[in-house]
Design a protein around this nucleic acid. Structure first.
Lengths: 174, 174
DNA sequence: GTGAATTAGCTTCCATGGAAGACAATATAG
DNA sequence: CTATATTGTCTTCCATGGAAGCTAATTCAC
């Protein structure tokens, strides 16, 4: 082993695989494994702040989607589900909880009687404004563990990777 | 908007926030938001391969941990839980499923009667060897959406970030 | 050596989300 | 206009994992 090289959890896993499966190229794990580990660690850190406001990650996301919509802070459940990447069934339950907590209201839509409209209440708006401010301070703290150059390069590569993955012209390989 | 700049989901969210909360610095989302989105998309892609072998992500992880252990492919449930970052309660259930599927066996430890030893069966070993080979081919395909330089720089920044986050000397900011 | 703490795994209960279908309202074809 | 298809939300059931506590076995203190 080289001196001082960081031997993190992923590196140890790679070492095991190299011994057990020398026939397989396991270098992709260096990127994908660490990306997952990091995402998990970041989520932990972020959830600490959500919890301070009595919110789960999912509830926080829903309140953010409503707040971002702008005045009058309303959206249909289906829109909220699409924005937050969950099924409409999951969204029903999240809205149930938020409604019970008095942070949102639910009413029928006027023009389409099967649609609903979810709206932030005043306490909901007040809560998410405080929580979001705190949340961003928290993200700033975490990103500041990187140098500005590192953060910039990271964002660029992540953006490129995401766009190539979504791009239908990308060679599928499958 | 600048010409041709990628306007991905995260960029749209940021635009919303800039309008609604001009008082908050939301630049950290550029990195953290995309990292989460990417982790989610990658997980989706990886799960497609696990599914091909009838495995969930959790089950795949457990089989990998056993396979990586090397001959005779045995580990205690507690070790497996630590390796795969779940509670021992969750591990009990994963092992239950794998045992029912005939991929692992569970027996008492000789030297400590309260400990168990989980071992890969021959079919389990055969399955995880095939699945892992396929999995790495899949990860390779995904990482190959990046140039070698991009992949290298990404891995370096992720490794640095992870190590600084785990480092107890890191300024907490809290 | 005996009683107290600890440890390993498991069990129970709860929280959350997905999948699929139910239901009511709306849109569409003829 | 009526019959059918579609849509938006909700409901039901299931899968998974965490938290906390249980039990049996081991270790430790004295």
């Amino acid at each position: 082993m080289k001196h001082g090289e960081p031997t993190d959890r992923v590196a140890r896993i790679q070492a095991d695989w190299r011994r057990e499966r020398p026939d397989v190229d396991i270098t992709p794990q260096g990127v994908i494994g660490r990306l997952h580990r990091l995402a998990g660690r970041l989520t932990e850190e972020l959830c600490l702040v959500y919890g301070r406001y009595g919110l789960s990650e999912g509830e926080f996301d829903v309140l953010c989607a409503l707040r971002r919509a702008g005045e009058p802070y309303e959206r249909a459940p289906g829109e909220l589900a699409a924005h937050t990447m969950v099924t409409t069934g999951a969204m029903t339950k999240r809205i149930d909880r938020l409604e019970r907590a008095g942070l949102v209201t639910r009413r029928r839509s006027d023009d389409d009687q099967r649609g609903r409209i979810v709206a932030l209440t005043a306490p909901g708006r007040e809560l998410i404004d405080r929580a979001f401010t705190d949340h961003m301070r928290n993200e700033r703290r975490l990103v500041d563990l990187l140098t500005p150059a590192e953060a910039e390069s990271l964002e660029a590569v992540l953006t490129a990777w995401l766009s190539r993955m979504e791009d239908p012209r990308t060679p599928g390989g499958e």
